[in-house]
Amino acid sequence: MKLKLPLIAAFVAMLSLTACGGGSENTQPAVVVASPATLIVTDIGAPGTGAVASGTKLVQVHYTVWLYSATAADNKGTLIESSVNSAPLEFRLGANKVIPGFETGVTGMLVGGKRNVKIPSNLAYGAAGSGPIPPNAGLVFEISLLSAIN
């Protein structure tokens, strides 16, 4: 009988710690999901002087992408990735190989041009999200068009 009381007390203490997460704290900041209402495409500086990205041309781009933030400067929240110091992304327009907002943002660019493209969630990864991109998140891209060939 003397042994039961300490065992019960220890069991109750363990359950209490388990219920509150065992005392560990999550130090990751919460990601606030936001999205622009519509696709916003803005040329940065001179629009470029080379071939136009149109039709089904094969294009090469460098890009940097951030989560859209309604409160951050230029709406650039958490940095997701950048291709600037690596091989360019190459894809054929109209082949549905990239998210719709990205393809729309590239279409009409001139080689040598740079654009800022704010993409609403429904033209990005939507309710599913993808990897580090949470569900229903808008994105901000800076895109440089390197080539556009038939």
Rank of each mutant, 00 (worst) to 15 (best):
Y63W: 09
E90P: 13
G101S: 11
V59F: 08
S83F: 00
F91A: 13
F91G: 09
H62A: 04
S83V: 06
T56C: 07
G108R: 01
F91L: 12
G94K: 08
K57D: 15
T78A: 05
L58M: 14
P88K: 13
V111D: 00
S83Q: 06
L89R: 07
R92C: 10
T49A: 09
Y63F: 12
V61S: 03
V111Y: 01
T49M: 02
D74S: 08
G55V: 07
E81T: 14
F102K: 06
G108W: 02
T71S: 11
P47Q: 06
N75I: 14
T104Q: 09
F91R: 05
A87C: 06
G77D: 08
G108A: 03
F102M: 15
T104S: 11
G48Q: 09
L89Q: 11
L93V: 06
G105F: 02
V84T: 03
G108Y: 02
S83W: 01
G94F: 02
Q60G: 15
V111P: 04
A51R: 01
L93K: 13
G108F: 00
A72H: 02
G101D: 10
P100I: 05
L58G: 13
V106I: 05
M109N: 12
L67W: 07
A87F: 15
T49N: 14
L67S: 08
V59W: 05
P100A: 14
V65F: 04
S86P: 04
